[in-house]
């Protein structure tokens, strides 16, 4: 990234695209809920990063910048989406079509079902993604920056302009909610827990 910022090296930027486009897409998808729109926004993230080239200072936290841009686009999109009210493939059905808790994409033979046996079972993956989508926005963005972006709590705090402790708290709350939502799938959850 330093090479790109200093010299405008296109190859360097291409490497950045290669490294970050997947996590950015995954991050945005959990907010936007629409694959086509997520693809557009993913492109927009890198176009905006390109425009910021002259202002980027190599502080070693390009990942922070990437997800900051992605987050802002997600926020803007969610505000616009409030006026759209259309079904997305990935949005949980929430009881529509007589199948609560499953997205339309899940009911259709989706192409994002993992093939690898070592991967999560579709049911588990679906449940996890549903649980993540049900998180409050503040917890979800922390959680996704952590798991999708691989960011440390310090980096998340810097991106969101909140304290480290707040980041840790939100992460803990998010994990607790997921734990409760997935309790029936975990044999360690012996039903004795009261959370």
């Amino acid at each position: 990234m330093t090479a790109f910022a200093d010299d405008g090296d296109e190859a360097a930027f291409a490497e950045l695209v290669r490294r970050y486009h997947r996590p950015v897409f995954a991050f945005l998808l959990r907010f936007v809920g629409n694959r086509a729109r997520t693809e557009e926004l993913t492109q927009e993230v890198f176009v905006r990063l390109l425009r910021m080239k002259g202002r980027y200072r190599a502080t070693g936290r390009f990942r922070t910048l990437v997800f900051s841009v992605a987050r802002n686009l997600a926020i803007d999109e969610s505000r616009r989406a409030k006026f759209r009210r259309h079904l997305s493939l990935d949005a949980p059905g929430r009881g529509r079509d007589g199948d609560p808790g499953r997205s339309l994409g899940e009911r259709i033979a989706g192409d994002d079902v993992p093939v690898d046996d070592a991967a999560l079972a579709p049911t588990l993956r679906t449940r996890i993604l549903e649980a993540v989508d049900e998180l409050p926005d503040a917890q979800r963005e922390v959680f996704l920056m952590r798991v999708a972006g691989g960011m440390s709590f310090v980096e998340i705090a810097e991106t969101l302009e909140i304290s480290d402790n707040t980041v840790k708290s939100r992460m803990r709350y998010a994990l607790e909610k997921l734990r409760v939502a997935l309790a029936d799938l975990d044999p360690r959850e012996d039903g004795k827990e009261t959370g």
Binding site: H21, R22, P23, F25, A26, L29, R30, D111, D112, P114, A119, L120, L124, R125, I128, L129, V132, F143, L144, V147, A148, L178, L182
Partner: peptide
């Protein structure tokens, strides 16, 4: 598990 699920998102 969540990381695995999200990384499995087909791009």
């Amino acid at each position: 598990q969540a990381r695995q699920a999200i990384e499995a998102t087909e791009v």
